[in-house]
Nucleic acid binder design. Structure first.
Lengths: 294, 294
DNA sequence: TTCGATCATAGACAGCGTCTAGGATAAACC
DNA sequence: GGTTTATCCTAGACGCTGTCTATGATCGAA
């Protein structure tokens, strides 16, 4: 197999007409270049040079090969400069909380898609998992809730929201402004398995003597919402989940709030344009916005 | 520096969309290919693939590089087949006796120049030197006199000739049909230092009481002939030396003869066409031809 | 949770590209 | 004729680096 370094040796000899000087120009010794040419001639199956102790000149075959070699070497250089000219494509690995609505993630993706030379990679998980990934430098930016512990100072809150019931638009309680736990005693419940407040919600109902029937458990919010819209049951979820066919009503005495924001290892780990757009989508989609966005 | 094997690895991954199978197709292990791609990406200064454990796909940079890589690979293959198609150029290393006229060597060169795909290399020397080179496989064919010793059977005689005086065309004896040694007593002699018969010639004159003055000694027959034509002196040389301005006359009682022919290690070491043309020139240029040539 | 598929990493090995040393050849010079 | 100089080749040792085996990490699917 003809390797590139042999081509470089060959062209050096063609240029200098002399093994010794060619070797110098390649920064190798003359014997090295000598065996290199021999190797090339063997793999080509042809003699490329007529050697004498006075001068070295190309055979007709060698002359033909020189054209090929020059062309190939030129192509290599072309490829190298072409690659150098490209500015490296930045890849932003974005961790998003699994309990963010699919449509919101889609909005973020759309917002970031418009930035030139930046490619986004999405990873989803729970808040603690996102923190671990951030620590391990496996993501660059997380859209998550306020962290516990060491990364606390790096968190930049953007918007906060409460939790409420999601129930079919045709449900008798759908038009209410508030619903108490005991009113749901006969309702079928759907469990969002990855919900941050799974235990808190459970405790809320048991503390009020309500033991609803659990018809389905899923890690997919989209599936749960589809079931709600289909009239299968009701569930508890953050306020930002708003889809057609599903009514959202606050629950009495259920005052849990989550604050969403961005979390980074260092302030400038991610281009500001990216962070700004993420902030924008969050503020737009979630009621209680923070900071300058109003 | 981008080496060719890295290009092959890269293209294999592009083709298979998968490091593991690409590695198989390259007959290396997956880690080998992995570090290869990493190395390539480093020397290119750009990420070429987006990797996940599900699939591998090209970055925009990678896609551009793939075009270059394919072009280069194609060029390599082109060069390789171009070289394969060429039939190897045969080099015939021809040893010629130094005491052959320059014009005869030129005639041989011309005769062999017409044979396609064959290149001739001339080496000159004395008969014994040519034999040594033939033994050492440093020449393929020798045009020489009948050898002594082991190579005797390999010799194929072609033509034989005598020796005679070479003297200026304007010399008083130029028109004679034969000249005796004593007639040259007042003449200036020129010595052809590499002549096979140097000692024999010397003895011929001293035996007849003639001690000529030696005006010049040279290894170059051409120079000696020029001096003869210029009227500087006379010399003894094989009959085949015939040039304008120099008369050739036989010497009385000087019956030495040399038989010229071709000498090879093996019968088919050299293409018959080459041997035939050499024979042709020899027979044409020298009087007493041998064999079928008449 | 476990399993299978995938790519990355680490350390050992060995192949081969490279080096130093020395040989051969031939032209040029004294 | 012998010596010097310039050139390329060969032989053997060395060491870089390309390759391997073994293992880890990740992710999706059963």
């Amino acid at each position: 197999m003809i390797e590139r370094y042999l081509l470089r040796y060959f062209l050096a000899v063609v240029e200098h007409g002399n093994f010794t000087r060619a070797a110098e120009s390649c920064n190798v010794t003359q014997p090295t270049l000598s065996v290199g040419i021999a190797r090339l001639e063997e793999s080509v199956g042809q003699r490329l040079f007529h050697r004498s102790n006075r001068r070295v000149d190309l055979t007709p075959t060698g002359a033909q090969f020189a054209e090929h070699a020059r062309r190939i070497e030129a192509q290599f250089n072309l490829a190298e400069v072409a690659m150098k000219q490209r500015q490296p494509e930045a890849i932003i690995r974005l961790g998003v909380l699994a309990t963010l609505p699919t449509s919101m993630v889609a909005d973020i993706a759309k917002a970031l898609g418009g930035i030139d030379g930046i490619r986004t990679e999405f990873v989803e998980g729970r808040a603690s998992e996102l923190q671990d990934r951030l620590d391990a430098a496996r993501i660059d930016l997380a859209i998550t809730t306020e962290p516990q512990g060491r990364l606390r100072d790096s968190f930049e809150p953007v918007a906060s929201e409460g939790y409420g019931l999601a129930l079919p638009a045709s449900h008798p309680l759908a038009e209410r402004t508030s619903i108490a736990a005991h009113e749901l005693a006969d309702n079928v419940m759907l469990v969002r398995r990855h919900c941050e407040l799974l235990t808190a919600t459970s405790q809320h109902f048991t503390a009020r003597g309500v033991r609803p029937f659990f018809a389905a458990r899923s890690r997919s919010d989209d599936r749960i919402l589809a079931l709600v819209a289909a009239g299968v049951g009701v569930t508890v979820m953050p306020d930002c989940f708003v889809v057609p066919g599903v009514a959202r009503v606050p629950m009495e005495d259920f005052t849990h709030v989550r604050t969403l924001g961005v979390l980074m290892r260092e302030a400038d780990a991610v281009p500001e344009a990216v962070v700004a757009r993420v902030r924008g989508v969050l503020a737009e989609r979630i009621g209680g916005a923070w900071g300058d966005g109003g």
